[in-house]
């Protein structure tokens, strides 16, 4: 509670200063010429690298051929979008992408927070550093290596099957990649293993910045560890959680390409293919870049809608929000 009221105070202070800034005079412009110059560079950068490429979206409404280029390809209106949404495979891939995106979001999110809090409770400095270092190392491995390790670990002669068989839990090895039911959990696990340590860093930083006097005061009041986590740590990192959540929700449709592409196979195709793999198979592989662009536009639109909704919800509930 205390924290929130402090924040609000700060905000009011800063907003009361705003009207003064709005007077743009030539003198003021002149005074800030150097700063404005720097800014112009970034505006140009933004236009060139973020906005100009959007012109390529026109490809989605053409039957784009490399030979004819952007200006001479035949216009086909919404045909490419029609092809996409009449294709059962694309609908199936939207489902897979959403499902894996949501599972990954929830699982990696929860795991990172839990891990950060647990790590924060470790009193032994050396142990804490060691665990933290080891846990974020997998982040630096590329997916090709991670999927290789997972593929090996889960193979018939891999460590998981060997362990389960040695403990007599199963009689014969299970071929995990041959069953549709295992695929999403495997992908979620892969994501958790690779990213938990890394994602936890930002929460750890947020926890460290919580005023220690709050903990001391709570201790005086007789709060145990659990109570401190619940009433001080969690509320303390709540703004961080909300901002990351809003930002990550827009990424749900980017549920991945490498993991599913590298771990998938014919048997689990029904649940493993994502929108990105669809674009690869039907767009890039067939030189049908228009189809790929159309799918890309779809993804962007959905992402924007999701972010706006999440942001609005955050705003409504009085939480930290992006815009």
């Amino acid at each position: 509670m205390d924290l929130n009221s402090k924040k609000k105070e700060k905000k009011q202070v800063s907003s009361s200063k705003k009207p003064m800034k709005e007077k743009i005079t030539t003198v003021e412009l002149h005074r800030q010429a150097v700063l404005l110059g720097f800014m112009v560079i970034y505006v140009i950068y933004g236009i060139v690298f973020y906005y100009l490429p959007l012109g390529g979206w026109i490809m989605a409404f053409q039957n784009y051929k490399i030979k004819d280029g952007l200006f001479h390809s035949q216009l086909v209106g919404l045909d490419k979008f029609k092809f996409l949404f009449e294709d059962e495979l694309f609908i199936r891939d939207i489902r897979n992408t959403l499902a894996m995106g949501i599972i990954n979001l929830v699982v990696t999110f929860v795991m990172a927070i839990v891990f950060a809090i647990l790590l924060n409770e470790v009193r032994n400095k050396f142990g804490k550093k060691l665990v933290q270092t080891i846990s974020y190392l997998p982040h630096f491995l590329s997916w090709i290596i991670v999927t290789g390790i997972i593929h090996d670990a889960l193979s018939n002669t891999g460590i998981i099957n060997e362990l389960l068989m040695n403990f007599n839990i199963i009689k014969s090895p299970i071929n995990y990649f041959a069953h549709e039911g295992y695929f999403w959990p495997i992908v979620a696990f892969a994501n958790v293993w690779k990213e938990t340590g890394w994602n936890a860093i930002i929460y750890l930083a947020a926890i460290v910045s919580i005023d220690p006097s709050l903990y001391e005061a709570a201790e005086m009041d007789g709060a145990g560890r659990w109570a401190k986590i619940k009433h001080i740590t969690l509320p303390g990192i709540r703004p961080t959680i909300m901002i990351l959540l809003v930002m990550n929700i827009g990424n749900v449709l980017n549920a991945g390409f490498e993991v599913q592409y590298l771990l998938g196979n014919g048997l689990v195709r029904k649940v493993s293919e994502t929108i990105d793999i669809y674009v690869l198979n039907w767009g890039v592989s067939q030189s049908d870049y228009s189809l790929g662009t159309a799918a890309g536009i779809f993804k962007s639109v959905v992402a924007i809608i999701l972010i706006v909704i999440a942001n609005a919800v955050a705003k409504k509930t009085g939480e930290e929000h992006l815009f």
């Binding site: 490399i66 767009g283 890039v284 592989s285 030189s287 870049y289």
Partner: peptide, 14 residues
């Protein structure tokens, strides 16, 4: 490496 021929050619062209 790790792609199909058509994917590779598609990305080279792109």
């Amino acid at each position: 490496t790790g792609q199909t021929a058509a994917e590779a050619v598609g990305s080279i062209l792109a």
